[in-house]
Design a protein around this nucleic acid. Structure first.
Length: 569
RNA sequence: UGUCCGAUGGUGUAAUGGCAGCACUUAUGAUUUUGGUUCAUACAGUCAAGGUUCGAGUCCUUGUCGGACAGCCA
């Protein structure tokens, strides 16, 4: 059980599993499940749950099922099923040979419903939804019993059958459990088990027109699949007595399923500045605020993937946030740390200039080109080297030059010598700044020292800065999409209630610029992660094709100059 | 004026009655052909009051604060 490499202390769920095994309550065959409803794309919050469930299965040599909780056909779609599978695979988990679906259990569920009716523990209620709501009471006021509550069993059975057969319109009747209308727990006040929905289901088609509610489907689905530990988020805590009540009703000696599941709750993931509700994400997509579910600004797994996050970084994040029962709001900075940490190890270094200023090396021969050697990753020699073309006219980043540099600015300025990475030392001429009629700098005239080829001087003199650059003639143009750190202007957890989230979108969340990139970018594989030195981590967007190159910025580098100079981003 | 759950640095998470630790963030310094990385150092915490105990973050009592629950959603 204890792997030596695992230094992290046990979380409370791991602790529980180990206790359950050592006390003999459970065998060593641990069975978990990840149970998404296919009504939207998975997001980073689901990633936590996926890592938890599949991670636990891996750690304890158990299994983890993928089960679609598809009990509400009007919200669900096959598109979501497919995307969910793809996202889980991308994270590196597999659920064996079978996909499970709550809808596969509809027959069994119906049989159990009949059984509960026969025990006199459920009844068909003909009250309207409004009447049911009105008689349920409030958390502090007991509810009132329905006039249909004491209907004879035979009549209930008949009505239930006719509900199933489609004799009644939507909303006209429900099957309710007969528990306790005065229970302090609202969920025990005769909860609805089945409702009538004449709707097409993405898997069962038109076979059913009554569909089980979550509470009547989830625990039983766990039971059917032999789930030992059923993990869910905190808001289901108050459902647990009901979860257990339904199991109590259906479990007896004749029951062919033997393993009784147990629900354990943990706190969901919240990220500041990030909206995580499926409802809101769906409206961003439907109302075209974003490109789709995989828009790189979305906190969806597919969005993170398209933005250039690696599965390893998401896994590391899920591990670092931990698992506990208290509400939490994680700083997005932690997620960014995780992605930088991984990308720093694996990203291909490339030079690129996003806001160019032209540099002319006056003493470099016209028409001459030479290829200089550059390392692909200073942290990993195994990633090899490449050659970068150099010529008389170059681009450097506009930020890398200041006509009147403040004290702590180390980069290029009139009369100052700096290094062009892998190339030469250059010095900006005192009178080398060329401006247009508006006063904007258009060109810098510089000289280079031929003795410094490769970036080292023979006489050992030092420069305080190294600049990245591209050769104008050789550079590849690309559309570069700069995603701001924040998709939202304000932290939704700080925003007062009722505030419209759509008006909270950060107007600078996406900026498109034309970048100039060294030609090596043309030769890399499409899913390569790379780093434009000093500018951040990038990846090639899926919309690139032919000569059109579109590049997403995954995340910026930590930028200590920005702090010194007070600049953002 | 209900039931359930929770409370440890700015954030997240450990400490199973026995030295309050780790990570992120922040700050400072060293190294550096990326103002990146790496390394070092520093700042900073047990919600409150009482009780049990040789000893309490941990157990008990009371209080305070926060969250969940009133869908024929999951």
């Amino acid at each position: 059980m204890n792997n030596v490499e695992e230094k992290r202390p046990l979380n409370f769920i791991e602790q529980k599993i180990e206790d359950d095994i050592s006390s003999g309550k459970r065998s060593k065959d641990i069975q978990l499940r990840f149970p998404p409803e296919p009504n939207g794309y998975l997001h980073i919050g689901h990633a936590k749950s996926i890592c938890l469930n599949f991670g636990l299965a891996k750690k304890y040599n158990g299994k983890c099922n993928l089960r679609f909780d598809d009990t509400n056909p009007v919200k669900e779609d096959i598109e979501y099923v497919e995307s969910i599978k793809e996202d889980i695979k991308w994270l590196g988990f597999n659920w064996g040979d079978t996909d499970f679906y709550a809808s596969d259990y509809f027959d069994q569920l119906y049989e159990w419903a009949q059984k509960i009716v026969k025990k006199g523990k459920a009844y068909v209620d003909e009250s309207s939804a409004d009447e049911v709501a009105a008689t349920r009471g409030t958390p502090t006021v007991p509810g009132k019993e329905s006039p249909y509550r004491n209907r004879p069993i035979e009549e209930n059975l008949d009505l239930l059958e006719r509900m199933k057969n489609g004799e009644f319109p939507d909303g006209s009747k429900v099957l309710r459990a007969k528990i306790d209308m005065a229970s302090p727990n609202m969920h025990m006040r005769d909860p609805v088990m089945y409702r009538i929905k004449h709707a097409h289901h993405h898997r069962t088609g038109d076979k059913w027109c009554i569909y089980p509610m979550y509470d009547f489907a989830h625990g039983q689905s766990d039971f059917i699949e032999g789930i030992t530990h059923s993990l869910c988020t905190l808001e289901f805590e108050v459902h647990r007595p009901l979860y257990d009540w339904f199991l109590d009703q259906i479990i007896d000696e004749d029951c062919k399923y033997k393993v009784r599941p147990e629900q354990t709750e943990f706190a969901r993931l919240n990220l500041n500045y990030t909206m995580m509700s499926k409802r809101l994400l769906l409206s961003l997509v439907k109302d075209n605020y974003v490109d789709g579910w995989d828009d790189p600004r979305m906190p969806t797994i597919s969005g993170l993937r398209r933005r250039g996050y690696t599965p390893e970084s998401v896994l590391a994040f899920a591990d670092k946030v931990g698992v506990a029962k208290r509400e939490n709001v994680i700083d997005v900075g932690l997620l960014e740390f995780c992605v930088r940490e991984d990308l720093n190890k694996v990203a291909q270094r490339i030079m690129g200039v996003l806001d160019p200023i032209k540099v002319i090396i006056d003493n470099y021969p016209e028409g001459q080109t030479e290829e200089l050697e550059a390392v692909n990753n200073p942290e990993d020699e195994g990633m090899g080297k490449r050659r970068v073309p150099f010529s008389k006219v170059l681009y450097i980043e506009r930020d890398d030059f200041m006509e009147e540099p403040p004290k702590k600015f180390f980069r290029l300025a009139p009369g100052r010598e700096v290094r062009l990475r892998y190339a030469y030392y250059i010095t900006c001429k005192e009178d080398g700044v060329v401006k247009d009629k508006n006063g904007n700098i258009t060109e810098l005239h510089c000289t280079y020292d031929p003795e410094t080829k490769g970036g080292q001087s023979a006489d050992g003199r030092k420069v305080k800065a190294t600049l990245h650059w591209v050769s104008e003639e050789h550079a590849v143009k690309a559309e570069v999409r700069l995603y701001d750190r924040l998709f939202l202007k304000e932290d939704p957890y700080d925003v007062e209630e009722g505030k419209d989230c759509m008006s909270n979108l950060n107007p600078d969340s996406l900026t498109c610029v034309t970048g100039y990139i060294e030609p090596f970018v043309k030769t890399v594989k499409k899913d390569t992660k790379f780093q434009f030195e000093r500018l951040g981590y990038f990846c090639i967007d899926k919309s690139s094709s032919g000569d059109k190159l579109v590049i997403n910025r995954t995340v910026t580098l930590r930028d200590s100059w920005a702090k010194i100079s007070g600049k953002n981003n």
